[in-house]
Amino acid sequence: MKAWILRSFKKGIITTRFPKGKNEVASPWSTTPVYRDGNANPYCPTGAITNKKVDANLCISCGLCYPEFEPSMDVRGSISHLSVPALKKSIRLYSIDVGSCGACNLEVMAMVSPQYDMTRLGVSFTNTPRHADALLVSGVLTPGMMDPLRRAYEAMAEPKIVFAIGACAISGSLLGKSISDALKIDVIVPGCPPDPFTIVDAIQKSRGLR
C-alpha cells in the first residue's frame, strides 16, 4: 500500500487541463489533414479530398495524401448537432461496438486514464443503456449488430444523444455502412480512430459546454 502511495506522490499532477487549457499532445494523423503543398487533389482512397479541402467525415487517417497534405493537429474537429444543457453537470455514456477494429473502443476507454480523467468533467460510463444519456457507437454497422443497436437506443431514457465515434461509424469508411442507416447521428467525432481529446471535446460540445 505504501509503495502505491509513494508512487502516486512521485508522479505529481498529470491530468490535462483540457478542455479549459490546450491539449498537450495529439495523434497527428487522427486529426484532419490540411493542404500543404503541390497537387491539390492527390489520391485519397475514400474520395475525401476536393481542391485542397478534406471532408473529415470521410477521412480514414491513412496518410496517403502526404506530403501534399499534413495533419492539422486540431483536436476540436467534432460537430455536435445538438446541445443538452441538462447534462452539463453529469453525463453517463454507454459504449457500443457495432463492427469496429477495436481501436475506437480503446480510444473511448482511454478517457478513463489519469491523463484525461473524465470523471473530473462529470463524465462516466454505465454498463447498461438504461442508465445512459449517450450512446457512443463505434464501427461499421454490421447486420448482426443492427438489432442490438436499436434495442440499446430504445432502452435509453430521454434526452438521449447518439455519438458516431470514428470514420467507420460516421461514413462506413472502406469497410461497410454508416450507423446512420439505423439511427440519427447527433454528434460526429472524426478520426480513424479519433484522438481521445477529440472525444472529450465532442462530449463537452454535446452538453453545451463549448
Binding site: V25, S27, P28, W29, I60, G63, P71, A103, P193
Partner: peptide, 12 residues
C-alpha cells in the same frame, strides 16, 4: 508512438 510514427496505432 504517436509522436514518432504519426499515429497511435501505426496506421499508414
Amino acid at each position: 508512438i504517436a509522436s514518432v510514427f504519426g499515429h497511435r496505432y501505426f496506421f499508414g
